[in-house]
Computed example of a mutant assay.
Amino acid sequence: MRRILALLGLPLLMVSAGCAQAGSGPAGPGQPTDRHQAFEDRAEAVAQQWRPGAVWTTGYVPLQEPTVLVGDPEFTEETKLAFQAGWYRQQVPLPSGKPGDGTIGFADKELRVPLISATEAYRQLDQGDPPPCPGRPKGPSIPPPADGPDAPVSSEAQVSCVPLTVTDVELGSATVRTTRGEAQVPAWLFTVEEINAVVARVAVAADAIGALPEPVPPTAPVPPELISAQDIESVDGTTLNFRLGVGSCDTEITPLVQEHDHLVVVGGTAVRSTGICDDMLKLEPVTVALRAPLGARPVLDVVSAAPLRLAGN
């Protein structure tokens, strides 16, 4: 059982990447001329070839990064930068001993797994010291002195990037999206002075974490008008928010979804530019509505056939 749906895209977010140029001329031999039909045919082929292996439904295979925020961090510009970059400083002793096995709670059953120490979790979390960040003022710009606007004013940077301060740590759990749906996963919970949320680092040992299967895309050429999905932004019941990777000169961008009982395939279409295009890629957030809640069903990209991960904060 499947369903295909097209909705209009949302505003664009630009990031540096390779250019995605292609002509929008006639389709090649064996390629559908209708853009929606091209998506539907390839999505059907992706769904038929999906063979994830036993670990997909019996082990622990996360579909998001191992660092998770528990609560609303209420980021400032500086603290968000520090969190995304992994800049931390330790202000409390960390337990170095390896804890006993922990339990991952899935919707249907539990799984016992070995855990790592708080020291190892912090080592994975901390990505080094922040560099200076010139040009990021600490407060409002200094007004010119009373003797006139032409008087010299210091242009020295007033602040540097700062790390997040860890003030406490305890072993707990965090909600993680996995190949078996959302699960309660053992995690070291780091209390951070500068934000309101707790920073959780998954505590599952590496040898207990299953790898995602290698995607097996259809052998047929990808229709040039099809666009690849990059990641999932959020899932809320039947609402699926994801991002398309589009060329900076693409137009008529449309997200598409094909829904099956055991998986969902997403992607999009666009009209490609035939003229000169800059060397940029845009990540466009889009939304589609599913017929039923996503649950534990994987979301596959129509171009690569790869399962999509939940984007980081």
Rank of each mutant, 00 (worst) to 15 (best):
P307N: 03
E77T: 12
L283T: 03
A205T: 07
A206R: 10
T269C: 03
V61W: 04
G97K: 08
A205W: 01
W50F: 15
R89S: 09
P131D: 12
I104G: 00
P163G: 02
W50Y: 13
S155I: 07
H262P: 08
R309C: 12
P26E: 13
E74H: 12
D150M: 11
G97E: 14
G172D: 08
S96V: 11
A174T: 14
V198H: 02
R291D: 14
G25L: 14
G210I: 10
P149V: 12
P255S: 06
A118S: 08
A151Y: 09
C19A: 14
K282L: 09
H262N: 15
G295I: 00
E77G: 07
C277F: 10
V265C: 08
R291F: 08
G105T: 13
V68Y: 09
V192H: 07
E284S: 08
T165S: 13
S273P: 02
S155G: 06
G28V: 03
F106C: 05
V246A: 05
L263R: 13
G23S: 04
A203H: 02
V55E: 15
S173V: 08
P93R: 03
A187L: 10
L111N: 02
D72I: 02
S141T: 11
V246H: 00
F106E: 04
V176M: 11
S141A: 14
G18C: 12
V235L: 06
V166G: 05
A211D: 14
L189P: 00
A45I: 01
P66G: 03
D34Q: 04
R272Y: 02
T191N: 07
A82Y: 04
D34T: 02
V204I: 13
V162Y: 11
E44F: 13
G268Y: 00
P137N: 00
P293S: 09
V222S: 00
S141C: 08
P26S: 14
R123I: 02
K80D: 07
P163N: 01
P137F: 02
R35L: 11
A211T: 14
P32T: 06
P99K: 02
D147F: 12
W188C: 03
T175W: 11
A121R: 01
E252S: 10
P186I: 04
D278E: 12
A107T: 15
S155Q: 12
C249E: 11
L300I: 09
V199Q: 04
V185I: 08
R309M: 13
E156Q: 13
F190A: 07
E170M: 11
V68G: 05
P137E: 00
L13A: 15
S234C: 05
A45G: 03
L226I: 01
V176I: 15
S155F: 09
S173D: 08
Q64D: 07
P293R: 10
V299H: 04
V46T: 06
T103D: 01
A305C: 05
P285T: 00
G100E: 03
L240W: 06
L240G: 05
K80V: 01
V198I: 10
S228P: 07
A197L: 05
S228V: 05
D72M: 09
M14E: 14
D301A: 05
P217D: 04
V246N: 01
E182D: 10
Q158S: 15
R297H: 06
P149F: 12
T79K: 04
V235R: 06
L12N: 07
Y60R: 02
C19K: 11
C161P: 03
S155M: 10
T269Y: 02
A22V: 07
A211S: 14
S16P: 04
A211H: 12
T269R: 05
L281R: 11
L125K: 04
